[in-house]
Design a binder for these strands. Structure first.
Lengths: 232, 232
DNA sequence: CGTTCAATTGATCAGCGTCAAACTAGGTGG
DNA sequence: CCACCTAGTTTGACGCTGATCAATTGAACG
């Protein structure tokens, strides 16, 4: 861990409000480490020893069953993972692997639970974070059960257009095969879905997305804050 | 609210450990009410005014989009709902309706947030409950994305067999149309899936389920605690 | 410049949804 | 108490969405 890591950690929402001594106690046992791309950080089913936080880079959460694999979500700078498992001292439900070179903060789960017990501001932040994650997953389920794969793709594109500043062109920040998995479809199907969005003014070449007529696309995608708004 | 409600509420996990005066403060503003079946308790998108708890009966959480509807889960005695929305003071992501005559406890969300701020034991219980719910939804997503509908049904049956005491016969506690929606399929498809499980020793007549060869069924369903265990 | 892996394309197929109709059961009122 | 009515369930026929398999193109990297 570098000296410069400490203010970085402190500025994360989860740690911003807590008392100085609690923060010191948490950081004392922390590890911060760089990982190469494609590194397995956590394996589904293992005991949860550390709360993880992405300081930089990106991490994929994924799940396996019966030889199949699916991507659950992709985490970027500032995101925490396996908070629920750390708090409940339960086995991890998902695996985690780096997508690119990433710097990861690891806090011993036991420290987290102990500090959680005594620092109220931290407890509050943990609850807010957990509630936020919970609502995120609920939105994901709603998308999966209520929408077709083309509708999911269309709404995904609209969401990222907004996140990227709202311009007509922006870059996909995920490999297409992973995007497909996150959206709950095969890579082949994603390719075809992309072409199926052409009549709605969508062109994707490589990582470059162009949405020439957002109104028309939204007309078909019917985005709603109750599924597509990352905040709220 | 009846006098007898108070010890009932107090005995729920969420309130068991908190200080007496905090509990009194929470209960002071509480409503407890009987609702007939099929009553809309909460509408998706509305502001979250009350934390709800099922004292008896059962409640369905459901979601709508673009004219479609899906059941998210079914809650029974002791379950809380819209805790995340109450804590974050955010709009509800799901609607809720009673399935049968149900007695529901309603705590003003503002009281919950205030007591949460000052009572640490309560904060702890809230976090545990939230983490529990979060993990439940994650398991649901894993089932949806990694399993076929027949596999989901098979695992559902095994899970409820265990919950019902492990005997070869037990009763479905849900209407089949709702079960279908929860499992992410149509009622017609559920009917056919049930018949497709016949070779694995499953017979369902009305609400009565008989699993004559659980080994054989489990062999095909491949249940795992990381998806199917309600605890952990 | 070649190797490797992602992305695309086409052909085919399976799973599952839709529609329609028959059947069943539970509840209500005569 | 029975007959009817309504709503859930089942069954069959059909079609669409999306998965699978195979082959090709394309792009990144050593």
């Amino acid at each position: 861990m570098r000296e410069s890591d400490i203010p970085t950690i402190r500025s994360l929402e989860l740690f911003r409000e807590m008392a100085d001594d609690s923060f010191a106690e948490l950081v004392r046992g922390a590890y911060v480490q760089n990982f190469p791309p494609n590194m397995e950080l956590i394996v589904e089913g293992d005991a949860c020893d550390f709360l993880h936080i992405v300081e930089s880079g990106s991490v994929e959460l994924l799940a396996n069953w019966n030889g199949r694999e699916t991507a659950m979500t992709i985490l970027r700078e500032g995101a925490t993972f396996i908070l629920a498992a750390a708090i409940r001292d339960a086995p991890n439900l998902m695996s985690a692997r780096t997508l690119e070179r990433s710097r990861i903060i690891m806090l011993p789960a036991e420290d987290v639970r102990r500090v959680f017990e005594k620092d109220h501001a931290f407890a509050r932040a943990v609850v807010m974070e957990l509630a936020y994650c919970y609502r995120g997953v609920i939105k994901g389920v709603k998308g999966l059960k209520l929408r077709s794969s083309i509708e999911r793709l269309a709404n995904y594109l609209l969401k990222w257009q907004k996140k990227s500043g709202g311009g007509a062109r922006f870059l996909l920040s995920v490999e297409k095969r992973r995007l497909a998995s996150i959206l709950g479809m095969t890579p082949e199907n994603l390719s075809r879905s992309i072409k199926a969005l052409r009549p709605y003014g969508v062109v994707i070449e490589g990582q470059m997305v162009e949405i020439s007529d957002p109104e028309k696309l939204a007309d078909m995608a019917k985005p709603t804050p109750l599924i597509d708004d990352p905040r709220s």
